[in-house]
Write a protein that binds this DNA or RNA. Structure first.
Length: 593
DNA sequence: ATCGTAGGCGCC
DNA sequence: AAAGGGCGCCTACGAT
């Protein structure tokens, strides 16, 4: 083991300086350890050091692990501070991310985490300024200790008291380490602890990746962006008056059509609906998919849908969007490692819902290329793996999984695809209904896996992804619960949600293992992930390493699949084939061809 | 003024 | 008989 230097205070600037002066490079493996749960010590192969300064961040100590020592912290705020300072550590245990996995839901601040680990209700978490005026025996512990006898953290510590002096910092760090120990004991009580712990680790590093994505941003060619936007809105307006005039011109195209009426507010769905009624188009709502059939026969509908498209660009993905989120040629937004539902990554600033039309503006910087890789048919393959359905897993041997499914069901490929998706989404109507019977006969194990999740969801019970994420059901479907007559709808909604979540969530887990593997292995090539899109990675890499990075992405996928599914209960899971479409490109829009 | 909801639409 | 999952972000609107 490495040399160990005890420290009392850890702060970002000093940490970064210390890491640099110790010769640590970005991506280096940092060997870390904790001594006696008090204070934090760390070292690298190149030397050890200590530090002390007044500006703290919630860096906890590190846990000792013979195979993979890693940083430990309460949440990714710490990672963000380190990344901002140019330091990227290899591994971490993110207490917040682990909490969301083990307990479900989205909220995971220290007070909530600590309460859960101590078996006390989050509803009783004390708040700042709450005084026990009635003298009812409120024992809030000792001011110089973060924990209270009742299992809660002291609110003054949570609100910033942890950072007031070196002793508090050390205790706060030690408390994070204690939280990890408690989380690991929770994990140890689960059916497959090794599996869950591995997932917690990849989910933790995914948070680290999120901090890096937020800092790095997505390369954007500003001129190209303006050009594309202009095809919808006209040239970039010079002033506010310009913008207003352009907007009026767009509105007038629709408003001047016969029967529309200049008083119609195109941005008010109720107005639009009655206007459509006047021109002979009777629809329950004005969604695009509902209006599309009328497009060929109604000039008004056609103009309205064209207007809607431009309006979407104007309001959400237009010049204002570029101006707000692009700096130094990079589009930046906040990232979250897992949503509150099934655990997919989320991103703000439009990074996850940028219209396909604008992808031509996503352009590699000079001397660089993108390597884009998207997983093929990830959800059915994951279903095969997590359910252990040998027949379904065998279908995954093909590049196109739907072909053998179609052959087995005796239906067209398009019907087979609909049937598979319908089973995973909980849809049983229409054309899918027929083929679903065939699915039940041909792939009973996979279908039973989905049915089990559905039944648990209907009953209001939590379900779990293969990696061990708890999917909370109790706060889902409330919108129906008020009315007893819609309880059936609520149950059905929970069933569909649960059915989909066990697949979508497991896919998200595999995706993140893949992503963090690419992150770990890509450093030597100068490869940086710049976008994660549920089943797609966009990697920015020096041009001369494009081909090598493409190979790396596939290698990492195979490694990720092996890591994630090797300990599965069913041997079938380990044999499921995962495929990625990988291309080296200069613009994101070059991808599909 | 600020907030939450609904309708709507973008992506997977 | 019918029953499609997730997210972010925009506008209008009603409630506070």
């Amino acid at each position: 083991m490495h040399a160990l230097e005890m420290i009392e205070v850890v702060d970002a600037a000093a940490l970064i300086e210390a890491l640099r002066s110790a010769g640590v490079q970005q991506g280096d493996q940092l060997g870390l350890a904790i001594a006696d749960g008090i204070g934090a010590g760390f070292a690298t192969d190149t030397g050890s050091w200590s530090m002390s300064t007044p500006h703290p961040v919630p860096v906890a100590a590190a846990i000792e692990d013979a195979f993979s020592p890693r940083w430990t912290w309460w949440n990714s705020d710490t990672a963000a501070v380190l990344v901002a300072g140019g330091v990227r550590v290899a591994r971490c245990w993110d207490v917040s991310a682990a909490h969301r996995m083990l307990f479900g839901g989205w909220r995971s601040e220290p007070a909530r985490v600590w309460a859960a680990l101590n078996g006390v209700s989050a509803a009783t978490i004390p708040v700042m300024g709450q005084l026990d005026l009635l003298g009812g025996g409120g024992d809030d512990g000792q001011p110089d200790r973060p924990g209270r006898p009742d299992g809660h953290l002291r609110p003054d510590w949570v609100a910033g008291g942890w950072a007031t002096n070196p002793s508090h910092l050390a205790q706060w760090a030690a408390t994070a380490c204690r939280a990890v120990a408690l989380q690991r004991s929770v994990i140890a009580s689960l059916p497959d602890p090794a599996r869950v712990e591995v997932t917690v680790r990849s989910e933790s590093v995914a948070e680290l990746l999120c901090a890096e994505l937020a800092a790095d941003g997505l390369p954007i060619d500003l001129a190209a962006a303006d050009e594309i936007i202009a095809t919808f809105l006209g040239p970039r307006p010079r002033h506010e008056q310009d913008a207003i005039a352009a907007r009026r011109r767009r509105d007038d195209v629709v408003l001047s059509l016969p029967g529309v009426g200049s008083g119609t507010d195109l941005r008010n769905p109720a107005h639009v609906r009655s206007m459509l009624d006047r021109v002979g188009v009777d629809v329950p709502d004005t969604r695009a998919w509902r209006l599309e059939p009328f497009r060929a026969t109604s000039e008004v509908v056609d103009a309205l849908l064209t207007w809607r498209k431009a309006e979407r660009i104007e309001t959400t993905f237009g010049f204002g969007w570029i101006d707000k989120h692009v700096r130094d040629g990079r589009l930046r937004g906040a990232w979250s490692g897992s949503d509150g539902a099934a655990g997919r990554m989320t991103a703000q600033a439009g990074l996850h819902n940028m219209p396909a039309d604008l992808r031509g503006a996503v352009k590699a910087e000079p001397g660089h290329v993108f390597v884009r890789a998207d997983l093929g048919q990830i959800e059915p393959r994951v279903l095969a793996a997590v359910s252990g359905d040998a027949q379904f897993a065998a279908a995954a041997a093909e590049d196109d999984m739907y072909a053998p499914v179609a052959a087995r069901l005796g239906v067209d490929r398009s019907v087979a695809k609909i049937a598979v998706l319908a089973a995973m989404y909980g849809q049983t109507s229409g054309a899918a209904g027929q083929a679903l019977q065939g699915m039940d006969n041909s792939y009973p194990v996979a279908m039973q896996y989905l049915r089990d999740a559905d039944e648990q969801g209907r009953a209001g019970n939590d379900v779990f992804t293969a990696g061990g994420r708890r999917i909370r059901m109790w706060d889902f479907g409330d919108q129906y619960a008020e009315n007893p007559s819609t309880e059936r709808s609520a149950m059905a909604a929970r069933g569909r949600f649960a059915r989909n979540a066990v697949v979508q969530g497991a896919a998200a887990e595999l995706f993140k293992v893949w992503a963090v593997t690419v992150r770990a292995r890509g450093g030597a090539l100068g490869a940086r992930i710049v976008l994660c899109l549920h089943d797609e990675l966009l990697v920015h890499v020096p041009s001369e390493h494009g081909a090598a990075a493409a190979r790396l992405l596939d290698d990492c996928l195979q490694e990720a699949a092996w890591r994630h599914f090797r300990s599965a209960r069913h041997t079938a899971a380990a044999t499921v084939r995962f495929v990625a479409d990988i291309t080296v490109i200069e613009k994101w829009s070059d991808a599909k061809g």
